[in-house]
Structures are given as C-alpha cells and as structure tokens.
Design a protein around this nucleic acid. Structure first.
Lengths: 120, 120
DNA sequence: TGACTATATTCCTTAATGAGTATATTGATT
DNA sequence: AATCAATATACTCATTAAGGAATATAGTCA
C-alpha cells in the first residue's frame, strides 16, 4: 500500500472520523450518518473514495452496506491507524464519536448484526 | 496543531521526503534540490507550503535559507513523524535520501554550518 | 408487481493542488 | 553601483477534491 494514498485518505476530517470509527467496529452507512451527523451523499461518497483506495471493504447485508477495514492490512496502514487513535485520544469530536458509537451498539435500530462482525 | 493539516502536508511525496529528511537535520534549499533531484521552484514552493502551515521554520544564513522542524513540536506532529520514519524504514527511495544526506554531511559544498544545528 | 428503504451515482459549481516558466528579491562580493 | 548566487513569488494550466441537488439502483416486503 502506498503511504501517500493513506495520507490522502486521512486528510479530510470526515474520512478521518470514519476510519477512526472503523477501528472499533464495522459500520453501515446509516451508522455513519447518525454518528457523524452528515448527509447520506457525503457519507456515501467518502466511503466510495476510501473503497477505491482499498482502505475499506464493503459487503451487502440486505438493504445495508457494511463497511469495514480490510481483514489484512498493510503495516503502514496499521501503524497510521494506531498513530491516529493515539493522536485523537483527547480530542472532543473523536471522543464524542466513540461515545455515540457505543450508544448505537446498545440501542441500535436495525442492522445490529453489523456489530457481530466486530470480533476481529 | 490540526491533525488534518499534518496529513495535508504529508500527502505529497516530495513534502514527505523533505519532512523525513528534516527529522535528521536542518537543511537548506540547495540540499533538498541535490538530495531529491527536484528543481529549485518545486523545492521552494513545497517549503513555502510547509512553512505556511507551521510544519517547518526557516532562518536566513547569508544567501542560504536554513529550514528545520520547529523546536517545539505538537505531539501530533511528533507522533506522525515517528510513524513516518517507521513506515519508510525499508522504502528504497527514503533510504536513498538518507544515504545522500549522510554523504552531503561529509562532502558538503558550502552551507555546512547547517549541520551544526543538527544537535537539537 | 408496486411501493419502500438504504445506498450509490451523476451533474454541477467552487476551490485547492501541483507543476512549469518566467521574473523578482535579497544578501554577498568586487 | 554592478554583478552574482540562492531563494522566493507571480502567472498559467491541468487535475483533483468537496459539497449539494437530483436521480438511479438494488434489495425487501406487502
């Protein structure tokens, strides 16, 4: 994997928050919409961007698309994701994202099956 | 310091190589030209880009401009620079850059005073 | 089949980026 | 003052990015 591509993916705040969330659990589009508070188009397009660069993979589950980090990740990606988590540990927005995610995992509407996949 | 800005600076290969080199030693424009094999404009403009985002600082030394990482660096920057060095440890281009730098430090033409500053 | 839900894609506009060419600036030297 | 060396800036062009609005697609369920 090309380092530059990783940084290109990282250099938009929305994508950064998405990737950060994906380090915790696979998620579907509606989860992102809900947690990030961003419109569907925006979420969907950023996911397409990430997908085209092999930073995430997607599988369909009925009506839902479940996005996750690739099973097998280049070490550069691993390193940078770890670094990211480190850097945002005390960042208000990223912390709130994690909280919202935790809440979703309990309360969740529908595609709760998603979270079963989190056992990677 | 804003994480996004860091990644924006990181997402061009020339800038990435520059920052990587600066983790070793302050350097002037002509050093970058020589090590990277890129024309003066390109080097100069990328340095301006980095400077405008506070990723590097510059001081004048006669005809030369000496660029270095800021003395006091945000922890995010430190983390990411460390991560970068880690990621490129076995990368051919980055390794060659380091070799060329080492060579320059011995043979160097003129603004050798630069390297005295490396004792940070 | 037809409506519905979740998601993706297209089109458009605006702004930013990267590279090259030419030119300007600034300090040093004679 | 004139010249030179090192570096910076302005201008132009092509490419990419980001967002919004509208529309398309693909599964699901009655």
């Amino acid at each position: 994997m090309d380092l530059i591509q990783i940084y290109e993916c990282f250099c938009d705040r929305t994508r950064l928050r998405m990737l950060h969330l994906l380090t915790v659990s696979p998620l579907c589009v509606c989860h992102f919409q809900c947690i990030l508070g961003e419109p569907q188009v925006k979420v969907s397009k950023h996911l397409a961007y990430l997908r085209s660069r092999k930073m995430v993979v997607a599988i369909r589950e009925g009506n839902w698309m479940i996005y996750s980090l690739p099973q097998k990740r280049a070490s550069e990606l691993e390193n940078n994701l770890r670094c990211l988590r480190d850097c945002v540990r005390s960042d208000a927005i990223f912390r709130r994202d994690l909280k919202k995610l935790a809440a979703l995992r309990k309360s969740c509407c529908e595609p709760a099956a998603v979270f079963a996949l989190a056992s990677r």
